[in-house]
Computed example of a mutant assay.
Amino acid sequence: MLLKEDVMIEFESPRLAMRQIAAQDWAIFYELHVNSIVIAKCFDPILPEEIEKRFEQRCKPWSFEDSDWLTLVVTNRDTGQALGLTGFCFDKGVAEVGYLFLPQYFGYGYCSESLAALLDWGSSELGIDEFQAVVTEGNIASERVLRKCGFQLAEVIPQNYCISGRLYDDHIYRLAKID
């Protein structure tokens, strides 16, 4: 099923609501890209201009046919508080998932819950049946989230990603949804 570009993407899980990122979400997007705890095992610090460029790209209308990221803000359903981001980019039949959450929300299961909801939505609404994620060696919490959602380690690419001048292995996780 293909979505029209003008359709706002929104869905929920028991505790969370996910919706497409919009201009009013700049503060959380920026914080997630500069917070040293969040980015430590993800990427090097990014210049503010680059963060702004990424934000503008992510706020554009999303289309399934594009290989751009669908970025969703994850909020607490009861309070409306933004907790983090989740989403995917779709290319060659596979959706690569990603997520970033503010440190004060680590350990509550929000990331796993939002990822499970994203996988269910992508599978039921878009017909996606193959997902993958790339995790930097040492990001144990992220690997735990992926395994909890059914992903399995499929490949390790040695010394493939550099953060702060150190080379790390990339861990490639995959999940095939079978109905």
Results as ranks from 00 to 15, higher is better:
L2P: 03
L2H: 14
L2W: 06
E5C: 11
L16I: 04
A23L: 13
A27I: 06
I28E: 10
F29P: 07
H33T: 03
V34D: 08
C42D: 08
D44G: 10
I46Q: 15
P48A: 12
E50N: 15
F55L: 11
E56S: 15
Q57P: 07
E65V: 01
W69Q: 09
V73G: 05
N76Y: 08
Q81C: 06
A82T: 05
L83I: 00
G84A: 08
G84F: 01
G87W: 02
G87K: 05
F88Q: 03
C89K: 14
F90R: 01
D91R: 14
K92F: 06
G93H: 06
V94D: 10
Y99V: 05
F101L: 08
P103T: 04
Y105R: 02
F106N: 12
F106P: 04
G107Q: 11
Y110Q: 00
Y110R: 03
S112E: 01
E113M: 00
E113A: 07
S114V: 02
A117K: 00
L118A: 00
L118T: 07
W121V: 08
G122K: 02
E125A: 10
I128E: 06
F131D: 06
A133E: 01
V135H: 05
T136V: 13
G138C: 05
E143M: 10
E143C: 11
R144Y: 09
R144V: 04
V145M: 09
V145E: 05
R147T: 13
C149F: 03
F151A: 07
A154Y: 12
A154W: 14
E155C: 13
Q159D: 14
Y161A: 00
C162P: 09
G165T: 11
G165A: 12
L167D: 14
I172K: 11
D179L: 05
D179K: 13
D179A: 09
